[in-house]
Each structure stands twice: as C-alpha cells, then as structure tokens.
C-alpha cells in the first residue's frame, strides 16, 4: 500500500490504535476548549453589552463628574420606576414619579425604602434605563445603587440620586425611564 493513501484500514493494528488514540485526544481537547469557551462567554458578554448597549451596562457605570453645558432650550421627561424585586421585603418608591429636566444640568432625585422584614437587612438596587439608546447619555454623579444599603429593623429612609443628562442625547428621545429593582440580599451579604 502506498504511503500517501490516508486510509488507515491498511495500517497494522498498532498503527490503527495509535491513530485512533491521537485523534480521540485531539477531539477531547476540542471538547475542553468548547467548555472553556462557554465560560469565556461570561466576560465576552460584558464586552458585547458595552459595544451594543444591551443589558444596561451603561446604567450600571460608575459615577461621573458633571461638566456639560446646560441646554436650556430643551426639556426632557425623566420617569422613575421602583420595582421591589424581593416582594414583601421592602417598601420602595421614588420621591417623584417624574421630572422635567434640561440636559446638561445637575438634578437631585431620590428613592425611599423601608425595611419590612423582621430584622436588619441589606439591599442592592440594580438600575435599568430605557430606551437603551439613552443609557450612554444618562450620567449619575451619585446613586444609592453604588453601594449596598443597610437597614435596621423597621428603618425607612430617603436614598440619594444625582444625575445629569448629556446634551448630546439624540433629538428623537424626549422621555427617559430610569427603573430600579430593589433586591433583598441579606442572606448572601452576611456570608
């Protein structure tokens, strides 16, 4: 049998076995690589979100310094939505349902939360902005979502939120909704 014929049925039993082993181990490596790729999708998803604005990566961005010029000619409605995700754990609502604001100006808004559980508790707020095209123009200089909120039993308080909307916000957007989900994370934070 000629050497270049790739056909191993013409091989001896040992050669056949070696060929099978080496291909099997290469395929096992491929399997492991696919498994690793599955996990690599987690950081890749963050990159994907940054690039596309999916998943509200911008809404969760760190605080910024306010420096834009005020666009006094333009008025935008900001709506606040409170979503007590862990039902029964908290009373949670915005101080104002909505505000009319000028882009470039710094505003104060706040949310109120009260602990309804039978002990001290810890909460985490997760923001979301829609339409998501607006997310990258909505900047928070201070937000209660940046840290875990600790409550004594029965304690209720206002929590701060300061924001500024970039005047470069596309002209077709005249209403932005900022929604917070308020999670009870007492169990996982006390670990």
């Amino acid at each position: 049998m000629d050497a270049p014929d790739p056909n191993p049925a013409g091989l001896t039993r040992d050669q056949q076995r070696r060929a099978n082993r080496s291909l099997t181990s290469r395929l096992l490596i491929m399997t492991l690589a696919s498994f690793a790729f599955g996990w690599a999708l987690v950081p890749l998803y963050d990159v994907f979100c940054k690039l596309t604005g999916v998943g509200n990566a911008e809404a969760r961005a760190a605080p910024v310094e306010a420096h834009e010029a005020v666009d006094a000619a333009r008025l935008i409605t900001i709506e606040f939505v409170a979503n007590p995700a862990s039902v029964g754990s908290y009373e949670f609502h915005p101080r104002l349902a909505s505000m009319r604001i000028h882009p470039g100006k710094l505003y104060d808004a706040g949310f109120y939360a009260r602990n309804l559980t039978s002990g001290a508790s810890v909460a985490q707020a997760v923001p979301s902005i829609s339409p998501h095209e607006a997310a990258q123009y909505f900047h928070k200089t201070e937000c209660f979502c940046y840290s875990q909120q600790k409550f004594q039993q029965g304690e209720g308080r206002d929590m701060p939120l300061r924001f500024i909307v970039d005047p470069k916000l596309p002209g077709n957007i005249d209403k932005v909704t900022l929604a917070y989900s308020f999670y009870d994370i007492t169990e996982s934070s006390s670990r």
Partner: peptide, 9 residues
Amino acid sequence: IAVMPVLAG
C-alpha cells in the same frame, strides 16, 4: 463537540 460543552457550562 462544539456546543454540548457550552450547555454543560
């Protein structure tokens, strides 16, 4: 081989 490990992950 390409996708079953992704589901496992």
